[in-house]
Amino acid sequence: MTLETKQKKPDGYLMLFLALLILSVNLLLISGKMPAYYKGILGFAGINIILAVSLNLINGITGQFSLGHAGFMAVGAYVSALISIYLKWPLILALLLGAVVAALLGIIIGLPTLRLKGDYLAIATLGMGEIIRVVLLNLEITKGARGLTAIPRSTSIYLVELVAFITVIFTVNLMRSTHGRALLSIREDEIASEAMGINTTFYKVFAFATGAFFAGLAGGLFAHLMGYIAPKNFEFMRSIEILVMVVLGGLGSITGSIVATIILTILPEALRSFSQYRMVLYSGLLIIMMLFRPQGLMGTKELQVREVFRLFGFGGGKNV
């Protein structure tokens, strides 16, 4: 109980453990011994981590219920892909511009809609995501339902890893500062937050735009990893998938998001041998998970190696 605030910061052991994990995965990558199939999963896991952590910033940390994350991802993907195809700019510029456009859209949409609360905001963002998808389906330049092909496949797994790393560091550092606390206070009680002198409108739009920026980056990486994008990659279900990762990991827990993302990226692949029962199992597990642990894997806490040992030592762990 008394360790509450200390538990919010990932500890040194965890950092060491993660560093070793990343190192060994990369050694395997460099040695060229990793099959392409696993490389693919690794890439998706990285992109999903960017998406989940950035959505956690909006949903878990700031408490603004967004169901439109795939929309921002789509904007980043299309803008960066179009730049690469037609303007042939360097990858980094294409990615950044895609992310900036997604962030701007986040501001334009966020300013009016963030006045809405809870479910209403969720519906508005859902609507926004759908509108973006329909626009992509109808524009000349996005080639409609056929999508964009022949995008240069210039993203490497290393770049995905790097961006995921930056996203996590950005969010963790933000969380530990007065700005992160301002975001948390909005989640807890918006009226009290405002009474503390916090410009809640600014911070909500900031969280929304930052989340959109990273989602846009993830979209750009996705486009340049796949070489092909279509509106069906960014349907409503994509937003839901990301949301599920965040909620399953625990709203507000960064390490929770990461762990849940890795599990949920690998799980459907692991279930591939059940082929047609795969999605049935996935949804069944999702329901059971929510029924038995509605606060997610981590609650609002952060994963700590010490805690993991204790969890195994006592078998039960602590309640939240």
Binding site: R181, E188, D189, A192, M196
Partner: peptide
């Protein structure tokens, strides 16, 4: 109060 946050965080905010 910011219920899920610590007493310290409430004041720091």
């Amino acid at each position: 109060l910011f219920n899920q946050l610590s007493v310290t965080d409430n004041v720091r905010i």
